[in-house]
Design a protein around this nucleic acid. Sequence first.
DNA 1: ATTAGGG
DNA 2: CCCTAAT
Length: 691
Amino acid sequence: MVFQKRTSSEMESCGGSHVAEMPRVPKSARGKRSVRKKESQGQAMCAFDLLATVAGKLLDEGEGSLGNMSAGSPVLAASAKDVCVKQEQCDEEGKHLKNYVMDQDSCNESALISHIASQRLADHHSRKGEDLNEVPKAKSEAVDKEPSMISCTKADLGSNFGAIADRWSSESVESGAFTGDAAANVMALAAAAFNKNAPDMYNLLDPMDVDVKPPPLVSSDSTGEMPLYGGKIHKSVSFPRGPKGGAEYSVDRENDDDDDKSSGCTHSSTATNRGFRPNCTADQSRVKKFLACKYRKVAPARMHKGDLSYSDADRKPSFRNKKMYYTRQRTQRSTFKRRKMLDRHSTLVSEEFAKSNAKRTTKVNAREPHAASLEANKGSNSMPFHGSCKSNDCHVKLKIKSFKVPELLIEIPETASVGSLKKTVLEAVNAMLGGGLRVGVLHHGKKIRDDSKTLMQAGIGHDDMLDNIGFSLEPNCTRHSSQLAAPEDIEFLETVETTEPLARIAPADSSSKHGELDASQELALTPLTANYQGNDHDSVHSPGGISSPEKASANSRAIVPVTPVDSSAGAIVPANKAKRSAEQGQRRIRRPFSVAEVEALVLAVEKLGTGRWRDVKLRAFDNAKHRTYVDLKDKWKTLVHTASISPQQRRGEPVPQDLLDRVLAAQSYWSQQQAKLQPKTPPLAEARLLT
DNA sequence: ATTAGGG
DNA sequence: CCCTAAT
């Protein structure tokens, strides 16, 4: 069993007794929800859904072939991996407490770790590859709170496999955690999939988590100076010769009690760099599902894009009085939200109008003559503004013909193509719409600021609102932001600036990218750092300047922008979130995970497992306010997916293969871990292993 | 507030 | 990323 200590509250709830926290087992209800949901909505199912369903079934049926085709995919491999877990249960409460303390001080972890990391590096340079034992010692001296961190330096690991193997083997023997093959396993692992780079090795050795509480029964570390309470986890991947083939992911937790014999896990020396070349037999169902889902998505996607004229009325009778036009899928959601809000006020708004008009009223200052020819009309949807009020009920109906849009200044080189100009304008507008933009309401030319006011109170009645009411799009943020401009888009954008605090889009050629800050900050991150130190742009940039000082100080994170050269620069400075939040729905700006973030995530998940996103967040992204546990969960999901597809199909900043390998390994491991606890009728094999 | 999944 | 159901 995996005993893990969790939060203080949890500890307390246990009355201090160390109630191990087992990996959360998904509630039975979960995972079935969707099914139920569908059933309940069956009647509402539209033709499209039906088609999608049929398609999905077909896919499922044909799945066999698909599965075979993808047999070599990492996913399969990962799923097929055997997981051997060795854990020794520790019942010493003192240790738990200690761990607890550690957790509590997690905020200091990063600082410590950073410190350690630097020390290690220094050590490494002075005496690389030698005396691995010393490192741990030094570490323990420096920090006795983070036992898990004590081990080899990254550099050491990367440069001295032999040493590591030796160390491990001896350790294994002593602790009994590993069989005599430990060394071989380690080597295989290293060579094989898991990468040969230092970082990976480091990670592999890296103890899973501070959470792992129980102390090792045997003094595991060669140095013997290892903290008694530190948990350690060793993961090894090997390629079994048996049919089961698969990487072996063995976790050795000192506190863990389960001791899975690695009967099924053999190691093979045939390690290829690419590692997972699985022949997997297990988990086909998972793969199936995976694939099926993937394909099924096609239909729905099409629906959204294709049906521009689709209005709510079509689906929701209750909205028959309202008209909504969608031009972009992207804005649909926010539109919808806004609509909902407006609906409450019985207001009818045409988003389309707003958009087209926004463009029209936009001032384009450009040297480019073509700029003047920007046409923003969406066609039939554009209608002159006219307020209409009518209603037998107390509902006010309005049609918005145009929004007043803040001046939009666009600068574009004469050499730019019309296409680029269009794109530029589009981006600028989208940035406004998607980013911090809010709607203002004017009545008789006066801005109505009190949102809580009812239309009636504001004097907006059926009769007088015709020409007295107006809407305006206003910048939501006070700081410039690249908002929606994704890094990829930047190259297409020429210099775009808004006179208003709207979106300011930097020139593509500029060395500074939008993700500059993020990138730099991320660079400051050391792979060794347990907690992603990325700054929270939102807080940093928020108008109120409400960054969390406490946190910053606590983590002693350096908010020192480094060089923006990081290729992973992808983060985008968000628009004013505070204001945005006020707005009910602006979709959050996209902020691609940087490699550093991914690594932090992987590290955390390796230790905590999937299903504990809250903890993962706290552990690795406590400082990144813009990353919610849901985000992390989603990212993990995409990572798993990414890892399962061919590199050619991946997009965005490429994630190091080693990281992806680790993702799969961890995913596989934790999946099995979860499965182990779930089954009512635990597999015999598992049961045996657990004893 | 979290978790798990679908969209 | 968003949205939601179920916890």
